[in-house]
Nucleic acid binder design. Structure first.
Lengths: 220, 220
DNA sequence: GAATTTGGAAAATGACCATAGTCGAAAATG
DNA sequence: CATTTTCGACTATGGTCATTTTCCAAATTC
């Protein structure tokens, strides 16, 4: 008695079969919307342009995602998972502390200095007044989570006696700032291209050394 | 034979005297526009709302500032002078290097962690795709100039042998990042209030110590 | 082929906006 | 009071946009 089936099950229904599943269409739309919002901001983006970019009609667009607000939120939600940096203790175990921190900073830099990431960040910053939920969600899921991961690692190094830090959260915040603020801001303002991997590595090396020296000396 | 007088000289003209000078009206409008753009972004702001906030008619608004673009540029231009940090060598001369750096960081923090400053920064970041001139101008006049001032000071300390830095520009960038990125971003995302002066001072102290220790140790 | 279902193209709707222009009430001079 | 000037209230125009609706050409089953 399964009256309700998957709406898109392939072999039922008499009419014209769907070109794509709604899932796929949804993806197309969200990708298109990301590009459009990125180029024009929330208020400047046009639903019509999104539909064109996605290659669907506005009718389909509105069937899948019913309002512009919902579309914007979908775009952010779709990307938010990519803003988290994982720190894998075991992969770093065989490295000395400076090399390990370098690795962590490189991972963080690759993530946050990527031009797509910066595009989303700009969107969030621009619109978080209009969509406080998005600001909060992004901050919790991306900024805070990366910070916590770093702080946890720093705290562990302290417990191992390799480091002396009063406040690992603050230390993590400073590390992130010294690593990415300047280049990220320059990219966001259109004053330079996103840095290549070798620049990120160079920067990470200098940051790691300066930071660790700063802490070790403080301990002495 | 002075035929052309000041357009608003108080005692000529037979008709109704102007309520304000055009200068004053212009100020009113720019202030109102700052609030409106800040609240709604460029595309979302309405000229009508700006006029209402300023308490003038749209006619007057357009007489003083002829287009929305020009208004936006006026808002940014009006504020851009406030984003520059001056470093007064003589005022710092009697301090040791750590105290001096602390002072510099406090000045920089007060400037860049102020909620009005952050509002303008958000505007610039949001709209610098639409107004590349604004992005460039802001970057040159604010970001770069502050950075240069700091780098110059750092370089001088190196020459005095108090510091060992390969790249003072990079050092200045890192200092700024560690000092302000995290709190500035949290404020911009609406996740906290702008920090009070004592928090800024605490942060400056920690930054200065960590940074100087980092550099000195690198020299040893 | 008839019935049925899909989704694109295009137009319709109702709102808001930048910008320009008209009108007239107020306030000063002579 | 007549004249002159300022400026706000109101209206108009041409445009864009989000959202809805209509119409229709496939594509599939029976």
């Amino acid at each position: 008695m399964t009256i309700v089936e998957n709406a898109k099950s392939p072999c039922r229904g008499r009419g014209r079969p769907p070109v794509r599943t709604d899932e796929e269409t949804r993806d197309l739309i969200v990708q298109a919307a990301r590009a459009e919002f990125d180029a024009s901001g929330y208020a400047g983006a046009s639903m019509c342009a999104v539909a064109q970019r996605a290659g669907v009609s506005t009718k389909t667009l509105y069937r899948i995602i019913p309002t512009k607000d919902a579309l914007f939120e979908s775009v952010i939600a779709d990307r938010i998972g990519r803003f988290i940096i994982e720190i894998d203790e075991r992969a770093l175990a065989h490295l000395d502390i400076e090399q390990a921190l370098e690795r962590i900073l490189v991972a963080f830099g690759r993530l946050t200095l990527d031009s797509k990431t910066i595009g989303i960040l700009r969107l969030v910053l621009s619109e978080c007044e209009r969509f406080p939920e998005i600001g909060r969600h992004f901050y919790e899921a991306a900024v805070k989570r990366s910070g916590d991961a770093m702080a946890l690692w720093l705290d562990e190094q302290c417990r191992k006696g390799l480091l002396d830090l009063e406040d690992p959260q603050l230390g993590a915040a400073m590390l992130r700032g010294m690593m990415i603020m300047e280049p990220q801001r320059a990219v966001m303002m259109g004053q330079r291209e996103a840095p290549e991997i070798d620049e990120i590595e160079r920067r990470a090396k200098i940051c790691a050394r300066l930071f660790l020296n700063g802490c070790r000396s403080a301990a002495a």
